[in-house]
């Protein structure tokens, strides 16, 4: 797998900490392998939306990679609940079902970005960089006001 320049947290230069949410163990393993090549650290995994919410509370990761189609609570609903309680949560939806209505619903409910499966490492890498930079840029702009 291709090697990427590490993406780190702007505040302390530490590795980005990920929570990976997907009902497929196989997909979780693949995403974990991918984010490790970005210098990231997988601190937790969940197989459905309900576990994702509790794991977020417990671990407060820097980024959540969240599938949409899952048993029980689906990804968009879980993202909405997480963002309602943690407005700064960075959630990236990762799903094979990427129709416009779904993407809009995810973004309206607080997701920061959407990546369609099959996931290309270089696409996910750019999205992660963007989402991590997004906050530091916003904080920088805020500090100047």
């Amino acid at each position: 797998m291709e090697k990427f320049a590490p993406v780190t947290r702007s505040e302390d230069g530490q590795p980005v900490r990920y929570l990976i949410v997907d009902d497929s163990v196989f997909a979780r393993k693949n995403l974990a392998r991918m984010v490790e090549t970005f210098g990231g650290q997988v601190i937790g995994e969940a197989g459905d939306g309900v576990s994702a919410i509790s794991e977020y509370e417990r671990l407060t990761p820097d980024i959540v990679l969240m599938d949409i189609t899952m048993p029980q609570t689906e990804g968009i609903e879980a993202a909405e609940k997480i963002v309602r309680d943690h407005p700064t949560a960075r959630i990236v939806m990762v799903s094979s079902v990427g129709y416009q209505e779904n993407i809009v619903a995810a973004l309206q409910r607080g997701a920061r970005h959407f990546v369609q499966k099959p996931v290309k490492a270089e696409v996910l890498y750019e999205v992660i960089k963007y989402v991590m930079r997004d906050d530091s840029a916003a904080q920088g702009a805020g500090a100047g006001v």
């Binding site: 497929s24 163990v25 196989f26 997909a27 189609t69 799903s95 094979s96 079902v97 990427g98 129709y99 416009q100 209505e101 779904n102 369609q116 499966k117 099959p118």
Partner: peptide, 21 residues
């Protein structure tokens, strides 16, 4: 088995995206 399920998810999910659009 997990891989076959994930591949089905990707193929069918992409087709579903087209049909929804």
């Amino acid at each position: 088995r997990e891989a076959v399920c994930e591949l089905a998810n990707q193929i069918i999910g992409n087709a579903v995206t087209t049909l929804n659009d």
